[in-house]
Design a binder for these strands. Structure first.
Ligand SMILES: [Zn+2]
Ligand SMILES: [Zn+2]
Ligand SMILES: [Zn+2]
Ligand SMILES: [Zn+2]
Lengths: 150, 150
DNA sequence: AATAATATTGTTACAATATAACATAACTCT
DNA sequence: AGAGTTATGTTATATTGTAACAATATTATT
């Protein structure tokens, strides 16, 4: 994420939190900024290291608490297959997103594909299952890496 | 999994490995048996504890190596969202499966839903993405737990 | 059968991810 | 100001997973 988009994103996040009357504290904002700036999924301890450059006494709970908040607000997603965190690319409302994860370059693209969601709902329904959350992570090679390799 | 189905499953696994000319050693079989017998996803260290009842000197690598083998053979799946392992319920060939995970009772149902797979392929394709693996885990409440609750 | 190559297991130590528990500080509301 | 709530500080620890190297067992080759 370039610095202009980053600034826009953080501003949007701030306004979103204001509307919801939840507190995007400086610390939470800093964690969000670290994640968004990286543009790729980042591990909690990687976040911690960067945070400690500004706040030397930050500890694991500092990061995990901020992550909990940011995930609740739909500003950050956790990628279960990577145990890493990614800024949402369209943080409108509560949603899970579906992810294309490139094993070569590590970049991730978030989608919100209606057809995928529908197929999941139908399958769950058929099984008499009441769906709360969906985790969809597709591993492979992105377009750029495909071209480079072949 | 009841003991009859368990025996069938283990026998089938054995024949599968024989056909493939890979070695389902006693240790690997024991790990598979522990996972299959539990009928629910089990953590690696839970497996280790049970394994140690028979093999007191089993250590984490013992379990993780067996898990690697069993996953390669498609006999066991890893659930990324739970960091736990589950015996495959139809171990025919290489496949990933899609999972309905009940947050109440912890039971998991494995599906192989063609429509889900197709929708993932289409979405990946549209994004110019070359799909290797798919991770689909649906969290919610199973039919039984729904009835009990409501 | 002896040898070499490969695959599996044993063993120790450690890395990486995440949480519990309790104290302190800040904010909000009356 | 005081009480209740939310957020942060701090220490310790739980949980999950690997690295590295030695010892055994299996398989293939002579
Ligand atoms: Zn999103
Ligand atoms: Zn790529
Ligand atoms: Zn399966
Ligand atoms: Zn259930």
């Amino acid at each position: 994420m370039n610095s202009k988009k980053l600034a826009e994103f953080l501003e949007y996040a701030a306004s979103l939190c204001e509307t919801r009357e939840v507190r995007l504290t400086p610390q939470r904002l800093e964690v969000l900024s670290i994640i968004a700036a990286s543009g790729k999924p980042v591990g909690a301890y990687e976040i911690l290291q960067k945070l400690q450059q500004e706040r030397p006494n930050a500890a694991p709970p500092t990061v995990y608490r901020a992550l909990d908040f940011l995930q609740e607000q739909g500003l950050v997603h956790r990628l279960a297959s990577l145990q890493a965190y990614l800024a949402c690319n369209h943080p409108h409302d509560e949603h899970q997103g579906q992810f294309l994860i490139c094993s070569d370059c590590g970049r991730v693209r978030e989608m919100e594909d209606g057809a995928i969601h529908t197929s999941l709902c139908k399958a769950a329904d058929k099984a008499g299952f009441d769906m709360d959350d969906e985790i969809v992570e597709i591993l492979g090679r992105c377009g750029e890496c495909k071209r480079v390799r072949s």
